[in-house]
Design a protein around this nucleic acid. Structure first.
Length: 213
DNA sequence: CGTTCGATGCACT
DNA sequence: GTGCATCGAACGT
């Protein structure tokens, strides 16, 4: 079942947590791909210094002020398209950034798209758990671009679905790649999952229990 | 293992 | 002109 708009019309932290284990699906012109969300960050309102809306409404961040369930896609560092799900009531600028997926369908297509990245010099095959690890990597693998900005996530071709997967064990940490608002633990991820970027807790993996919710 | 640093486009001041 | 919600190559240890 496709998540309805009401799913996004809630506190952003609740949406971020519950998006873990849901499935991002994109039927693009060149093929079908999907993956389970394993990492997501909340950006909440003009009072959140790391939110794009921190300095008020602009042309670029206008989607954040729109109705919940819209996709907000923007270009970062001139290279990477990032995809967010707009949350909360219209006029309350907030969203959840999708940062990691476990690939489910369309892996050959994902591999092809990743290999096409002009800056990728290493032509060896990308391991499946790295195809959609990191926000820039997952949009590249899924084929999501700026052209998908403002698409409703409640309709084809770009949707997020509840496929009945078990709710995962969630850990909360500081958001990544920002210099302000790092005190807020607004990054939710599936404990110990390989497709989660910058996993905490040293070198290896055992799902060391951090901060449960 | 670790860290540094260049690439690259555009909204915003 | 500045500064990014990044990535991965290159180099040091």
């Amino acid at each position: 079942m496709i998540l309805p708009a009401e799913f996004y019309h809630r506190p952003t932290l609740d949406v971020a947590r519950e998006l873990l284990g849901k499935v991002l699906v994109y039927q693009s012109p060149d093929g079908f791909a999907s993956g389970m969300i394993v990492e997501a960050e909340a950006y909440i309102g003009e009072g959140d210094p790391a939110c794009h809306a921190a300095a008020g409404r602009t042309v670029r961040n206008a989607p954040l002020y729109g109705p919940p369930s819209l996709a907000y896609v923007y270009l970062n560092y001139g290279l990477h398209d990032m995809v967010n799900a707009v949350t909360e009531a219209e006029g309350h600028p907030s969203a959840v950034l999708i940062r990691g997926l476990e690939p489910l369908e369309g892996l050959p297509l994902m591999r092809r798209r990743r290999a096409q990245a002009p800056w990728r010099k290493d032509k060896t095959a990308v391991p499946s758990h790295e195809l959609c690890r990191g926000p820039g990597n997952l949009t590249r693998a899924m084929g999501i671009t700026l052209a998908d900005n403002l698409r409703p996530l409640t309709r084809e071709p770009l949707t997020i679905r509840d496929e009945g997967l078990a709710p995962p064990l969630v850990v909360w940490d500081s958001r990544i790649g920002i210099s302000v608002g790092t005190d807020r633990l607004w990054r939710a991820s599936v404990a110990g999952h390989r497709a989660v970027s910058a996993r905490r807790g040293g070198s290896s993996d055992p799902p060391v229990g951090r901060r449960r919710v």
